[in-house]
Design a binder for these strands. Structure first.
Lengths: 351, 351
DNA sequence: CTGAAAGCGCTTACAG
DNA sequence: CTGAAAGCGCTTACAG
């Protein structure tokens, strides 16, 4: 006996019930069902009840794809970040997702790995899939693709790095001020030879932090000691090791982000240099782990969760009313005092 | 003079060009355009050229939403994790996203905050939006909603925690074995009173790790000292502080995850208890930060990136061919030796 | 209050 | 090789 196999995908994809199915079961037209579902007025109570029963029975769920095709807003926003391995971005992403959910929006996510071509592809893809707006931590804020993307008419909000030639809302922190305060704090501790350590000065926020360092040091008539690598953290420990070998050459380090801070700590520990007595340390970006390092690390804290939730609110506002001109939001940082800077005690209660 | 404002959304949403626009400009039917785009054969070279020109001129991009409605696969998979603030999940997410991108899939992401009702809502939403498959780190692997979700016919892969009553592919690590090895290592260092510290034993992987601890300790005829809180890390430090106040009561700690390890380190440091001489420590979950803590922390490392990329591959396989029966993948862990366990030197080169 | 018609932008058969 | 028709599942006007 020969048994005719069902075509596999037909057999499996149990067709989802449609409006028509519900309408037929309830003995009404599909318009009535549509109205009942969308809470329109003008549906008699009795009919509404029949429709609800049919919906329950069939376990009917509206097909969101079809709804979108009729012009209904997708309630999706896209988020593109360079990486999720950096806690800054993963916490940001969590905050974005939570805030979006509170407003009944879904979040599309993509990781660009700081590669503009990936970023562009993902942004295009998102626009093609009808996101209502985009949150973008751009790898390169002035890439030409941004103009054409922006001209697609969907709103952008630039996070952490503004988009040069595109008029968009943006949100970031006081990178310059936060860095300057940190370095001034080291100076207040009597440090004279302060190294600025980091990488990827092409990123605007990093550049701002370096500027903050520079102005603080120059105002105090101290020497400028900058070791900022081009675009990778690869050689960071190595070059720092070299500097540290000549002890006494520096008496403090300001690191421009959390990865740099990690490298600095590791190099100092490996070289058995005492922190803060021999070399003090303040890093930009606060991490939970700084509470348990040796010693605990004084750091510039960014209000990450606020950045994320504000960014979403700004975007949703923009989606609502497209008229207003672009806004720029700048949030303050906090210097969290711990032991690596030379301060005696922690400024924060235990978590 | 009264100026009639354009209705705002009409004015702004510059209508995207459609197949029809391209067809008209190229002077052909829309079918021909469709075929040209999708690389079908049977399009004369000359016509193909005209079509390509029109597409370029109009900057036409196919409307993905319309394509989906005709039954074309969405090339979207969903990922639901409990949190992105835990590095385990953020690295997992990055790996999932990267692997999916390599296969030309997009990733929908949602954070459940370990709340089953949020998880359910997000899963429903994703199914409604036609994801082809779901990667799920479920807050509660046996919730009833999973059955009906699974019956929607779209494939699931359970990550980190299997889905009890639903026959799905799953992927996780050797939690029991990894934990047992860690505790046995402490025993090999001569530790006699080993505390197991953590929270949320309802999660299957945590429960497995506790079992591993228990069997290791019992085999060595050592006392069972378990301090595992119900479901929050809140009181963790507090209860540990209490235990530590009676020094000598314990001489080692095994922590069940990275958050617990952080708390343990902080409490030990605050109490000025020397690690490892007074109390040794091994934690489940490896973090970069463990390289710069005081002392560096010996930890059970999970192959997080492999979990993520394998999970995606398993899911895509399943999407292709729905026939096969459910697979279960279990990956090994590695004990990364550093100083907190009592070992003299690091087992790993510097990063 | 309710329904038949037309259309969203594409693709899958069917005819040339 | 190419195109007119029908349909994916819904919603927006339009008529009752």
């Amino acid at each position: 006996m020969i048994v005719q196999m069902q075509p596999p995908d037909k057999a499996n994809k149990l067709r989802r019930p449609t409006l028509d199915d519900v309408a037929r079961l309830a003995g009404v037209g599909k318009m009535t069902v549509s109205r009942a579902i969308n809470g329109h007025p003008y549906v008699s109570a009795e009919v509404a009840k029949r429709v609800q029963a049919a919906i329950r029975k069939l376990k009917y769920k509206p097909n969101a794809v079809a709804q979108m095709l009729t012009g209904r807003p997708s309630r999706i926003v896209g988020l593109v970040v360079p990486s999720l391995e950096d806690p800054f971005f993963s916490v940001l992403t969590q905050s974005v997702q939570e805030t979006a959910r509170q407003h009944n929006y879904q979040v599309w996510i993509a990781v660009s790995n700081s590669d503009v071509s990936i970023e562009k592809a993902e942004v295009d893809e998102m626009i093609g899939r009808a996101v209502e707006g985009l949150l973008l931590v751009s790898a390169k804020g002035d890439d030409p693709y941004l103009r054409s993307a922006a001209s697609a008419g969907i709103p952008f909000v630039a996070i952490d790095r503004s988009l040069d030639k595109v008029l968009t809302d943006s949100i970031e922190v006081e990178n310059y001020k936060g860095a300057r305060e940190a370095v001034e704090h080291l100076i207040a501790h009597g440090r004279k030879r302060i190294l600025c350590l980091g990488y990827d000065a092409r990123q605007a926020p990093i550049a701002q932090r370096i500027l903050g360092y520079r102005d603080a040091v120059q105002s105090a008539r101290l020497p400028l000691l900058v070791e900022v690598l081009q675009d990778s953290s690869r050689a960071l420990s190595e070059s720092l090791d070299g500097i540290l070998r000549k002890r006494g050459r520096i008496d403090a380090i300001f690191t421009v982000n959390n990865v740099s801070t990690l490298h600095a700590l590791e190099s100092l520990n490996n070289a058995r240099i005492r922190i803060p007595s021999e070399v003090a340390l303040i890093g930009f970006d606060d991490l939970d782990a700084w509470r348990v390092t040796n010693p605990t690390v004084t750091a510039v804290r960014q209000p990450i969760r606020e950045i994320g939730s504000l960014a979403v609110r700004i975007l949703l506002d923009r989606i609502q009313s497209t008229g207003k001109s672009a806004t720029r939001t700048v949030l303050p940082t906090t210097l969290v005092l711990r032991r690596s800077c030379g301060c005696p005690a922690a400024s924060e209660p235990r978590a």
